[in-house]
Design a protein around this nucleic acid. Sequence first.
RNA 1: GCCCGAGUGGUGGAAUGGCAGACACAACAGACUUAAAAUCUGUCGGGGGAAACCCCUUACGGGUUCGAAUCCCGUCUCGGGUACCA
Length: 863
Amino acid sequence: MPEPAHVYNPAAIEAKWQRFWKQNKTFKAIDCDYTRPKLYVLDMFPYPSGAGLHVGHPEGYTASDIWCRYKRMHGYNVLHAMGWDAFGLPAEQYAVKTGTHPAVTTAKNVDIFKKQLEAFGFSFDWDREINTTDPKYYKWTQWIFSQLYKQGLAYESYEPVNWCPELGTVLANEEVINGRSEVGNYPVVRKPVRQWVLKITAYAEELLAGIDELDWPEGTKEMQKNWIGKSTGAEVDFQVQGGKDTIRVYTTRPDTLFGATYMVLAPEHPLVAKLTTADRRAAVQAYVNEASSKSDLDRTELNKDKTGEFIGVCAINPVNQQPIPIWISDYVLISYGTGAIMAVPAHDTRDFEFATKFKLPITCIMRPDPKACAAAGVDPEAVIAGKACWVEDGEMMNSSNDEVSLNGLRMTEAKQRITDWLHAKGIGEPTVNFKLRDWLFSRQRYWGEPFPLVHMEDGTVKLVSEEELPVILPEMENYKPTEDGEPPLARAADWLDYTDPVTGAKGKRETNTMPQWAGSCWYYLRYIDPHNDQAGWDREKEKYWMPVDLYIGGAEHAVLHLLYSRFWHKVLYDLGHVTHPEPWKRLIHQGMILGISYKDQRGVLVPNDQVVEKDKKFFHKKTGEELTMLPAKMSKSLKNVVNPDDIIKKYGADSFRLYEMFMGPLEEVKPWNTEGVEGVCRFLNKVWRMIVDVDTGTLAPEVSDAPMSREAERILHQTIKKVSEDIESLDYNTAISQLMIFANEFSRMPQRNKTALETFVLLLSPLAPHIAEELWQRLGHQDTLAYHPWPKFDPAKLTVDEVEILVQINGKPRARINVPASADADALCALALADETVQAQIAGKTIVKSIGVPGRLVNLVVK
RNA sequence: GCCCGAGUGGUGGAAUGGCAGACACAACAGACUUAAAAUCUGUCGGGGGAAACCCCUUACGGGUUCGAAUCCCGUCUCGGGUACCA
């Protein structure tokens, strides 16, 4: 028998409705429409890589799309757009290898990405599409840089980079493995290079203060706070013994000054070379050299085992005139504080480890609180004897000189008193410090925004005028750095030469380019007014649309992108270019989608094309070893990347969307399982057959105008309630479960109320929009349902007369009884006690306590 | 190392202080079919019992509570970030 003519056919209806939405500009966002509330929903825009879209991209985009469609049905004017974060390393590396201009590669990839995204039926306003590599876009990236520059927030500095002499290029941290290049395994050195740096630290206080206002995941807020890392403490000067030099240290614990028994400098500290004695020079120099080849991360990673060298001289502890040895060690970073610390091993874990290893003296100056000590499992006597470390509060001891005594004080008062004393003596100051470092904003690469800067012949740096923007990236044939390590743009002979249009003064253009962060720092402002060539954005439109109401993107951006962008926004706010101090009100992270992978007994991951299946077990194709399945990050090398095109082709975009949302909570990491797509596809088929007669294509004969049973009404209203609440809180997985329950129930009914089915279609529409539009039309409606009012439930239809509740005895389930739904706690207990099973259970025992929870349970505590 | 997050059936998950396993996937059995696919119906955490039913079970170890997957403390494992991947 041939298949019926009118079965669910996603390919046909998805193409039909995508065409309809496009032709009718259904999702056009109207600027400054004050008749409707606005809603700005933002996705993190993708880097259009050559590999095309993977299944991770559509997850966040589907989530935001559902939210947009749902809110349109509530009367919102929604701004939802897409664009391309298209500067970046891969296109440049490809250019170096093949000579293909990155712009060509990028255009091709954008094309592929756009076609792929369109197949999902996302309700983007495609008229607002943007591309960070478009000179019409990066003109304004350069313009924003100019504003920062004019504020004195950009400066030149020599900063260390990963320089690979063999490859003649600067490498990203991830391209360096154990001090060697990932490609070719050549040695990599840390070499200072002239860079542009943005003074994000000037905004540290504001960036920190703003976090509290945000409706963001708490963990992300926490990470940003820790990244900014504000601490209060003091800077203290130590004299070098027998010399004129002073070493300034930063400490958060000035109260422990009397316990400082040695001092540590970062290996890069400027005084190291000067102070080191002749007999220690060789060892110290070797240590400095070794440290210089490691990144900060490498250093701290190896920090379990502390290393260091004594430089041969001592400093004088200013509170007690004790000489204390000066060491250098990796665990002190030059980039934080003053690059030097006083070490108090009795009250700092790192110092304690170091002192123990190198047998340095440990002096306890604080008696721990016995209670806190016991809770932490630390022996107070061991702390006092210098055999254990105590970092919490306590009572100061051994801390006095002729002028000041901290003995008997608590940490807070002790900090205050010693800081006052240091200040009075002129050897210390209360200091606020931030972990946050200024932002290294230049790259020695071709494929990025050129800086609007010129190095003039007289040695000054000139910011090119606004009229001269954009500074266009020149065409080139060679994308490699020059032989002497200059950025690729140093090869752009004609482009380099600059003549001031007014004065005729000559200079050379800046050859560094901006990092990829630049374009993504402000793209949400460009969607507001993407075609404006007079300004980055129109003031009134900005005022109308901003701030972004909901921003969805990966947790991997929790600190860097989200912090850099907030920084730019705050500068723009201070200059009056934007009207809100924060760009994004609410933020949600979608969890990563993992692929299926396999590992052997040693735990080594095996590429999927090396795996064969036999009777639900997996074996290595070559060795025959049995493998275990596990979820792992999708990657080309593991051959476990799932291509969305294949899934859409087989099941349709609605099934794809539904599956990704049904997998689990939006924010969780979830493994992809293609079999799961079949489940939701089956559900959509069932929905189709519930409404459409697959032989004729008209409505199914069961669809009727007859009134619903009370039970059918209850299911309908429960579904409206659950789906509305769950979409509102972005719990899409449970909203879908409820829709499945509705379809299971209604499909079984010989009479299916048409109004109930229409309501169901509306509820389904944000999640699976194509099939919903099609069914809506077949149910007799002319227009799109995209702006149809969202259904409301009637609480009266949800009630039941009787509920079954649990009776527990001493917390164990013992009986189930039916009670009126309205019964209160006392009535419940009375009903429970009247039950035969319960009476048998409590016979001969005394009721100590009875707890009744209406609609839930009764718990009887008996003896 | 440091910061952040997560651990529940064979699998994805539900339940965020009140009957653990909703809704699905996979598996098994049955109906329909010449047969298969599709569809429909049923079973489906582990152990014990003929059965009524009982015991155990939310990574591990403690604690708070009448009651804990849920709250607190500790441990382990996995994932994200760590400033030039984006």
